[in-house]
Amino acid sequence: MKRLLVSVLVSSFLVGCVATKSPTGRTQALLFSDAQMQQMGAQSFEAMKKDQKISQDKAKTNYVNCVAQRITATLPDQSQKWEVVLFESDSVNAFALPGGHIGVYTGLLNVATNQDQLATVIGHEVAHVLAQHGNEQVSRQQLTGIGMQVADVALGASGVANKDLYMAGLGLGAQIGVILPFGRDQESEADIMGLELMAKAGFDPNASVQLWKNMAKAGGKQGPELLSTHPSHGHRIEDLQSGLNKVMPLYTQARKQSLTECKINR
């Protein structure tokens, strides 16, 4: 009976799987709805706010918020409110989660040395959300067996219906699925999309090249955590440089508007 129920659960995942195209044309297998991903993102973000120290530096916090707000103001869905938190940590990292959550670590501000470079990173992370990369990663984990293990444990402990088993899988996604490292294809996709986002927000796309050069120097040979699964530095910079001509008109148009310059005012 246990095996039968697990088979039913796995079958339900497969039936619910949606094959779609990413913004750059890659095929994605997505198991979860937007509402489910937003729940995972909210759970993960709340857990991180409890477990990690939040910066009390108002100047840095306002600066990060300024950049993030200009990026998110360019998005088609303006009904989505974005929460931005600056975490106190030497980690050179940032992330965005489904449901409108952006986290930036203070260590990143030592490498992203101006508003345009910081916009490169935030635009890149927001692009991951827009391209449903979190959903793609959680779905891959479920399809490669982690979901079956969780279901089996839940069945043995409770013997109840599929709802509880489904929530067990959802809980797993909230813990590790949404914040799993992205693959290289996803990273390259986020680079290109992020370049367009920052240009639309009036941040100079040329700064993206210098930012990733700074990243390549940070942390020695290993580089910062943010680069752990990214394409090689040279390959990434080449891709960004090749994309500049396409997005520069967007930047030029955005600069005609009245934009708030983001600075750390002390």
Rank of each mutant, 00 (worst) to 15 (best):
S79P: 04
S158D: 04
V178K: 09
H133N: 11
R236Y: 03
N135P: 00
Q28P: 02
E189F: 08
S55P: 06
S22Q: 00
R184N: 12
E88H: 09
H233N: 13
T252D: 15
R70L: 03
R236V: 00
S158M: 04
H133G: 05
E83K: 03
S79R: 06
R70Q: 02
L97S: 09
N110V: 01
K200W: 01
M48H: 05
H124W: 05
L165C: 08
S228K: 15
D57K: 14
M167Q: 14
C262R: 06
T24A: 02
F182E: 04
F32W: 13
T252R: 15
C17A: 14
G243N: 06
A218V: 01
S188F: 10
G219C: 06
L118F: 01
D185Q: 01
V121A: 11
A29S: 13
G25F: 09
L155W: 06
T260I: 13
L109A: 07
H233R: 13
N65Q: 14
F182L: 12
Q186R: 05
A73C: 05
N214P: 06
I102E: 04
N135R: 13
I146P: 00
S188K: 14
I192G: 00
P181D: 11
D116A: 12
Y105Q: 14
L244M: 05
K2C: 12
R140I: 08
V138A: 10
V138W: 09
E46R: 15
F87D: 03
K217E: 11
D34W: 00
G99L: 03
I122V: 13
M37Q: 08
I179S: 05
L240P: 00
Q52N: 08
G156W: 00
Q52L: 11
Q142A: 14
G220F: 05
E238G: 07
I146G: 00
L4S: 07
Q43A: 12
Q52I: 00
Q142T: 15
Q43G: 03
G145L: 06
G16T: 07
S228R: 15
P76G: 09
V153S: 15
T113K: 15
I237C: 03
K263P: 01
T229I: 11
L9A: 12
A157M: 05
A201R: 10
I179W: 00
Q241S: 08
S232W: 01
V209L: 12
N114Y: 04
L197Y: 10
E189L: 02
V153Q: 15
V178D: 07
T106A: 08
V6N: 05
V67C: 05
Y251S: 07
F203V: 05
A207K: 02
G220E: 07
V138Q: 05
G183T: 06
S89M: 04
S89C: 03
Q132P: 06
Q149D: 12
G223I: 03
D77H: 13
R266Y: 02
V15L: 15
P98A: 08
G123W: 01
M48E: 08
N110Q: 14
S158T: 10
L75I: 08
I146H: 11
C17R: 06
T113E: 10
S11D: 15
K256F: 04
G183V: 00
G223H: 09
I176P: 01
A201L: 04
A216E: 13
G183F: 01
K213W: 09
A207D: 02
M40G: 06
Q28I: 14
Q186K: 01
N65C: 07
V85A: 02
N162Y: 08
G100F: 02
G100W: 02
